[in-house]
């Protein structure tokens, strides 16, 4: 579930308020939006993906909030990781992060051939 919107990183674009499918965030009175309904968070990570400032941290636990230390998260290198791996925004020109989703079926075939080699030779 969403745990942090880091004010000093946030540019106040409010993309996260718009993209969140379950309407968790609200435009705040200050610079950054705030987490208004954490319990509605479905842990889809879309707010992180759409945050060009890398100012949002979503915890992987979808069943309950697990509070985190802001300083620890800032130091962790985890902020912005998802957006980078998706090759979005400034990462679009970086060939290390090109979308190779189409390789998925080859991975399934490799699994079939390595885990069950006998069967795949028979079929």
């Amino acid at each position: 579930m969403i745990e942090l919107v880091i004010d000093e990183r946030c540019s106040g674009c409010n993309s996260c308020v718009e993209i969140c499918p379950t309407n968790v965030l609200e435009i705040g009175t200050g610079n950054s939006p705030f987490i208004a309904r954490q319990n509605d968070c479905q842990t889809c990570f879309m707010c992180e993906l759409y945050c060009a400032d890398d100012a949002i941290y979503v915890g992987p636990d979808c069943d309950r909030p697990v509070p985190v230390e802001k300083q620890a998260i800032l130091a962790s290198g985890l902020l912005g990781e998802l957006r980078r791996h998706h090759g979005w925004d400034e990462w679009a020109i970086d060939s290390r992060y090109t979308n190779e989703h189409w390789q998925m079926e080859k991975v399934f075939l490799r699994a079939r051939d390595t885990i069950f080699p006998t069967q795949s030779q028979e079929t």
Binding site: E81, H85, E100, R110
Partner: peptide, 23 residues
């Protein structure tokens, strides 16, 4: 049992798969 070359490619095929594990 995942081959090394596939481990290396998982992030560009399924960029969110490793996310819960890393966190």
């Amino acid at each position: 049992r995942t081959p090394e070359d596939i481990r290396a490619k998982v992030p560009v095929i399924s960029p969110n798969f490793m996310l819960p594990f890393r966190r």
